[in-house]
Design a binder for these strands. Sequence first.
DNA 1: ATATAATCAGATAATATTGTCTTAAATTAC
DNA 2: GTAATTTAAGACAATATTATCTGATTATAT
Lengths: 145, 145
Amino acid sequence: MSILFSRQCEYALQAIFYLALKPHGELTSIRDITDKLEIPYHFVAKILQDLTRKKLLRSHKGPSGGFSLGKSAKDITIFQIVEAIDGDGFLKNCLFGFPKCDSDNPCSVHEQWEKIREDINKMLTSKSIYEMTNSMKKLQYNGIS
Amino acid sequence: MSILFSRQCEYALQAIFYLALKPHGELTSIRDITDKLEIPYHFVAKILQDLTRKKLLRSHKGPSGGFSLGKSAKDITIFQIVEAIDGDGFLKNCLFGFPKCDSDNPCSVHEQWEKIREDINKMLTSKSIYEMTNSMKKLQYNGIS
DNA sequence: ATATAATCAGATAATATTGTCTTAAATTAC
DNA sequence: GTAATTTAAGACAATATTATCTGATTATAT
Ligand code: SF4
Ligand code: SF4
């Protein structure tokens, strides 16, 4: 089971990381992405379409077509991707799923959890895709060479 | 969508909190629990059976039967419930779902995430059900009075 | 023209969630 | 002590959600 992010969102991030590893402006096909990352083609195709509509990616049809980042990797945060796919509910909702708790009169963990999700938020908004891929560059995370 | 914990796990925690609010030893029926918390009867029934098998709850059939905590609320941590239902994968797996990343040569967020899940772990293991319900006692989290 | 690759609609599969109904155990009323 | 009643246990079906696949169509480069 996935933690924090949905499967879709995980694939989105993996794909974006992979895209950002490529030379700037170079187009990368879905097939390339999904083969290397070993993730399902059509599922990813939909996700990338979605991200394209939301201007986070650009797409190009035809031979030697594919996807590239919609803007500089330095200007895309992890959070932007997550928000586009999963929304930001994971930073707002009750940890225990109580739908009606408005968190005045907070429970014993609310404050701690608040702090933690603040940290999560900080982590996701402070790291750009550029920084991420920099640290991944020469490594194999899933056969990425 | 649920965050961090599965729906099952959320219900388990809600039910346990509710049980712990009752006087020690008193039996509470599934119907009582699910009516008050407004959560599905049969789904919860299964979860409680599961927790009973794992000795976190005790059950009693027949009229005035029901469930009670398997041990003192002070001796049950949130983590024990979560572990029983969801396991501990959420503290171990890669945030991005990379199945083959062994995290030597960690990526740019790995350390931060490590720290955060350490905090999560601390939060879940340090809070007993007793402390939780103490802070909830006079509040309505979902119609609980 | 032809091949490539994204787009899109839709079916299918897998999983998670919820519901129906029967059975078994325990209590209470008689 | 037997019957009626209450409640958990359990098998199984139905639904919802998420994930994946099939097969077309459309755009574009050569
Ligand atoms: S106070 Fe506790 S129960 Fe209420 S929203 Fe915060 S974590 Fe959830
Ligand atoms: S180093 Fe990064 S990619 Fe690897 S397990 Fe840690 S978070 Fe995941």
